[in-house]
Design a protein around this nucleic acid. Sequence first.
DNA 1: CCGTGAACTTGATCTAGCGCAAATTCCCTA
DNA 2: TAGGGAATTTGCGCTAGATCAAGTTCACGG
Lengths: 253, 253
Amino acid sequence: MMHSLDQDPEDAQNPPAGPRAPAVTALSHVATLAPFASLTREEARKLLDLATVRRMDEQGAFFHEGDRADHVYLVLEGYVRIQHVTPGGDQVVVVHVGPGQIFGISKVVEHDRYSASARAASDTVALSWPGELWDQITRDYPSFVQETRRNVGLRLHELQEKVVEMATRPVEQRIALAVLRLVDQAGHATPEGVEVGFPITRQDISDLTGTTMHSVSRYMSGWHKDGIVISKRRRVVVCNPDNLRRVADGQAA
Amino acid sequence: MMHSLDQDPEDAQNPPAGPRAPAVTALSHVATLAPFASLTREEARKLLDLATVRRMDEQGAFFHEGDRADHVYLVLEGYVRIQHVTPGGDQVVVVHVGPGQIFGISKVVEHDRYSASARAASDTVALSWPGELWDQITRDYPSFVQETRRNVGLRLHELQEKVVEMATRPVEQRIALAVLRLVDQAGHATPEGVEVGFPITRQDISDLTGTTMHSVSRYMSGWHKDGIVISKRRRVVVCNPDNLRRVADGQAA
DNA sequence: CCGTGAACTTGATCTAGCGCAAATTCCCTA
DNA sequence: TAGGGAATTTGCGCTAGATCAAGTTCACGG
């Protein structure tokens, strides 16, 4: 039940309440997230009252591709993997979503089905608003919805970058870029370097870059030897971002 | 100046006005496009009054990647290629935009720079609204902006499909899928089959699928021999969509 | 402390598709 | 009608990276 992510003691948002208390939804914490930044204390509280808190164990699914898009989600804690499985059984990871970011955005773009599945990459806490309330929310909390749109834009941009990378970069560079993006978006500092904030396997990284587990393993082992990363089982730490960036640019020695 | 697309005499929207008359903006025509569908005649007219008509020759650029996102565009006639050029000089075509569709959507997702360039794939007529008016438009013509968001959603979905394809499909299938999408989104019927509605080279198709001109040529020649497509210089006609779909699914004989 | 399965590593082939090169065809203009 | 440039075709060799095939290491439950 305890995942090693929980070793990370830096989160101070849990007041000394009882265990399992829904204290993560503490207004003081949530209000710091981008989508709430421009709301008054009072507005934030009301908007929170409209939401439901959903806790999800690692690997649990918030929704599946093809489901009716009945909710919009916001990650409070943990990370969510947006992924697609082909008829042939190939997994493709589209993007990772972290604290303060929206997922299940179909409603935001006027779609009525989710076009990918959402699984918790680590134990995760998220808020969810029912789709029926979306019009009301749009009306009453425009700055929140604006942030939501900005999120969609980021997603669009990241997806475009990914298409460009897959079309133009060799595998090694794609993997390096993916790892850099992971620590950039979900990294936390450790003594050895910046660590990806959730468990991730070689297979996951290959699903993210459109290659095979084997290639990911080979390149990461190489980088390990060169002191660029430390890669344990389901864990990735980048020790030398500069060199990794050089690899990503094809300027590796 | 006359491009071969103009051979196509099917467009009836040009009333017998003088040549070069801005008659394409005739309300009766524009009103049929999806973004205007839910507006009253009067609203449509007012919204049109806020817009500027821009005509663009084939290969002309509406804007470039990195430009300040100061306008939102709507294609009236012709096709626009959204593309990205890497530092290394590789072209990647992200998507094609046709009549009734929006491009330059940065404003819609709260971004302030275009993340790709927009060039006319054929001689094109588009409307453009200045970004400063966007808030006003959002307020006064919500159904228009809603359609705009739906467009963003389609783009997002298509981009995701593309990522999945590039990650899981071999080159032949990717090319087949791209051609099918082209005739689906921009095709018009001809005696021989459905033709892509704008000039497109082997190189363009390879930029669209992340492969080389050579591979595209090889596979298309093969399909030509099998009677699946007719491919002349800068022109593609799909004669047998069913078989091409079979190729795209890897079920080719 | 041991057994089991999942994650990871590493070597050995094998091939799809790229890069290079050289024709050939088509279209436009002079 | 010839000339020239762009688009396309096609052959050939080569290599990045997939596939196949064992192993090895690790975490956890008993």
